[in-house]
């Protein structure tokens, strides 16, 4: 069930980070530089609000890389919509990630 989420600067940054291909917690922390303690609660809220959806990495793929499967987050349709609104409100955020965007592996 989706519950509305307040669009703050922090949420905008996390959405933008996910959109530009940073798909799991520590990667998002590295990419955004926002305080470590706040990323996870933010991810949980966004997931609960259905702006993000999560799926587990394919076990075989992970085993090939010699590590446990990661939980990857991606934007949902609502998330993409919300990101558009967030970009209008915090135009600086998109610019920050435009340069850092990398291809989705």
């Amino acid at each position: 069930m989706a519950k509305p989420v307040r669009m703050t600067y922090l949420t905008a940054v996390v959405l933008e980070a996910v959109a530009s291909g940073h798909r799991y917690g520590f990667d998002i922390m590295d990419a955004t530089g926002i305080p470590d303690g706040t990323v996870y609660p933010c991810l949980r809220r966004l997931e609960k609000a259905a702006l993000l959806a999560a799926r587990w990495e394919d076990a075989g793929e992970a085993a090939a890389k010699n590590r446990p499967a990661r939980k990857y987050y991606r934007l949902t349709a609502e998330g993409t919509e919300a990101l558009r609104g967030a970009r209008a409100r915090f135009p600086g955020v998109a610019r920050t990630f435009a340069s850092a965007a990398k291809a989705d592996a």
């Binding site: 799991y24 917690g25 520590f26 990667d27 590295d30 587990w56 990495e57 992970a62 090939a64 890389k65 010699n66 590590r67 446990p68 499967a69 990661r70 939980k71």
Partner: peptide
């Protein structure tokens, strides 16, 4: 269960690329 799996996977962050790490 999910919590532990997710966080343990996070702990391998930065140890990529695959072997030899």
């Amino acid at each position: 269960g999910d919590f532990v799996r997710e966080w343990e996977a996070e702990l391998t962050h930065g140890f990529d690329p695959p072997p030899p790490a």
